[in-house]
Write a protein that binds this DNA or RNA. Structure first.
Length: 569
DNA sequence: GATAGCGGAA
DNA sequence: CACAGTCCGCTATC
């Protein structure tokens, strides 16, 4: 029931305001995260927005309209605006109004309400996707009782995309091809020879993906924090399906990592697993490839030479690792592969290019979203303390900043030399810890590394050198590493428990989450991690920093804001 | 036959 | 917004 002491205000434009300093804040935040997206998170009032996609995501993971309305009502100060209730009902009600089903070889688009089907089928672009042109011209389309039409099976993905645009998110129940069978099992892991055991949430993820037999389950996206063991979940799904599998990842070290894990944890033999990369072009019952090789175009022809990998074998499952990074050309391939089971894995289903709805459509609906704080409370990831330090700039720099062109301002603020003093200070506080200093501009990092007398790793650092430094860091003989954006990709970067971010990509929530993830693997004893973000006070960088933090704020991480005293007022 | 180094791409 | 990193495939080198 609405009450003045509640923390939430729901406005008629579908924005939702949440009071941070309210005793019910945390409860309300965790509830809102299920069906709304955090837009702004300044000190006192956070702004969420209820969007069609956020509602459909909730609907597809089984949340009902009633539950959403009840939650809003429960935390709201005032009675909900009627218009918002109506809109939520309307929008969520649209999920699954149309379904894709199979009848023998036929792919059918069905709707309980003939009027809806009529509206859809009359659409110019939809007409092109119908099974036959003849059908498209047929008078049946004005029939008041039409509840199904036959669709060209090839167009399954395209149709889903189109229907999403028309705000009819379709529920795809057309099922999947089984793929070639491949038998595999977990390998005995411990000395007692007991089989490898999934953690409870991992087991739950596998089951959720697989839910309700073969029709409803079988494709979708699982969202899990960094360090939650996504490869293990992928393997868990493979165990369920027992079929030939294609795994797509972002880079070569991830390819190696998958193969290593498969070797260690499953009974698959070496000859059954292979990599398809720039180095080797193996095609095996389980093949691990990079996205880049798929998007490679020959210079002369401009053709995608490696797309045929999708058809090389009768894959029963395709795993998209870090699915939020799925490149646009692979979208197209994926839209043609709707008959294959697809598993997307990611820590943040956020793309700064706004194409997350395409991931949602073409890979599958979000099946599960494990909140970071839940894993923290279960001890799978470390407790982190996040601090944003706002650093002033020198008088001269402030002058430069004021005079700089709009696009140069960000860099000027980011490279504020005064950040160095703060980094040194923080290092003093963390003498016993393993510290990563992470930044985006190599010049700035070179300067920092020199002053801190710490080694620097950038993209130019040879692989050998990197491994040597990683090893020293791991053994503890080295306690500070300065790293550039390599930290965003390198999965072999050792764990630390302190990260100091001195600059980052404009407003990337993804990157912020990744960087926090670097320090969340629990250590022995006191499992605390510290994340510091250094930004120049009263600059564009400060605004971007706020945007970067949104995803983690949504996950319940509270940034403590510290403001450095002005040295020259 | 392996591998290091380079340019272009997304 | 642009910077940085990565990958692929090619060529040179032993």
């Amino acid at each position: 029931m609405p009450s003045a002491t509640n923390p939430v205000i729901v406005q008629s434009d579908r924005s939702v305001l949440l009071e941070v300093h309210n005793p019910l804040y945390e409860e309300a935040r965790d509830t809102l995260a299920i069906f709304a997206e955090l837009e702004k998170s300044p000190e006192y009032i956070h702004t969420y927005r209820i969007t069609p996609l956020s509602l459909w995501n909730a609907a597809s993971s089984g949340v009902s309209v009633g539950e959403v309305l009840k939650a809003l009502d429960q935390y709201s100060k005032f009675p909900l605006p009627d218009s918002v209730c109506t809109e939520i009902q309307q929008l969520m009600g649209r999920y699954g109004l149309v379904k894709l089903q199979r009848d023998g070889d036929m792919l059918l688009l069905t709707a309980a309400d003939p009027v809806i089907l009529l509206e859809i089928v009359r659409h110019k672009e939809v007409k092109l996707l119908l099974a036959s042109a003849e059908q498209a011209r047929s008078k049946d389309f004005s029939s008041p009782s039409l509840t199904q039409v036959e669709i060209n099976p090839e167009a399954r993905g395209q149709l889903k995309q189109l229907l999403m645009k028309l705000a009819y998110p379709v529920e795809d129940l057309a099922g999947y091809s089984q793929g070639n069978p491949l038998s595999m099992a977990w390998r005995g892991e411990n000395p007692q020879g007991e089989p490898f055991a999934l953690r409870s949430y991992q087991q739950q993820a596998v089951e959720t993906f697989h839910q309700q037999g073969s029709v409803r389950g079988g494709s979708g996206v699982l969202v899990l924090p960094c360090g939650a063991g996504k490869t293990v979940i992928g393997m868990g799904v493979m165990m369920e399906l027992q079929c030939e599998t294609l795994i797509l990842t972002t880079n070569n070290s991830a390819v190696k990592q998958w193969l290593r894990e498969l070797r260690d944890k499953t009974t698959l033999e070496a000859s059954q697993m292979g990599e398809y990369t720039g180095e080797k072009k193996e095609i095996c019952p389980v093949t691990v490839a990079t996205y880049q090789i798929l998007t490679y175009r020959s210079k002369a022809e401009g053709t995608f030479d490696h797309f045929q990998l999708f058809n090389e074998k009768n894959w029963g499952l395709i795993i998209y690792d870090e699915v939020h990074l799925l490149p646009a050309p692979v979208f197209r391939a994926t839209s043609e592969l709707q008959a294959k089971r697809r598993l997307g894995l990611t820590a943040t289903l956020i793309r700064e290019d706004g194409k997350e709805d395409e991931v949602f459509t073409l890979i599958g609906p979000k099946k599960m979203d494990v909140p970071w704080k839940i894993l923290e409370s279960q001890g799978w990831i470390a407790t982190a303390e996040c601090t944003e330090w706002r650093i002033s700039m020198s008088k001269d720099r402030r002058m430069d900043y004021a005079l700089a062109e709009e696009k140069g301002k960000f860099r000027l603020a980011a490279e504020n030399p005064r950040k160095l003093e703060k980094v040194s200070e923080l290092m003093e506080c963390h003498k016993e810890d393993l510290v990563l200093v992470i930044g985006q501009y190599v010049r700035q990092l070179e300067l920092l590394a020199r002053e801190l007398k710490a080694p620097l790793i950038t993209g130019k650092t040879p692989q050998r050198e990197r491994e040597r430094l990683y090893e020293e860091f791991r053994s503890g003989s080295l306690h500070c590493l300065v790293v550039s954006k390599v930290a965003n990709f390198a999965i072999d970067l050792p764990d630390a428990n302190v990260a100091i971010q001195v600059s980052g990509t404009f407003g990337s929530r993804q990157e912020e989450a990744q960087r926090l993830g670097r320090i969340l693997r629990p250590k022995q004893g006191d499992s605390r991690a510290y994340f510091y973000s250094l930004v120049s006070k009263d600059t564009k960088e400060q605004e971007f920093a706020m945007h970067r933090q949104l995803f983690l704020t949504e996950q319940g991480y509270a940034y403590k804001i510290m403001i450095e005293e002005d040295l020259e007022p």
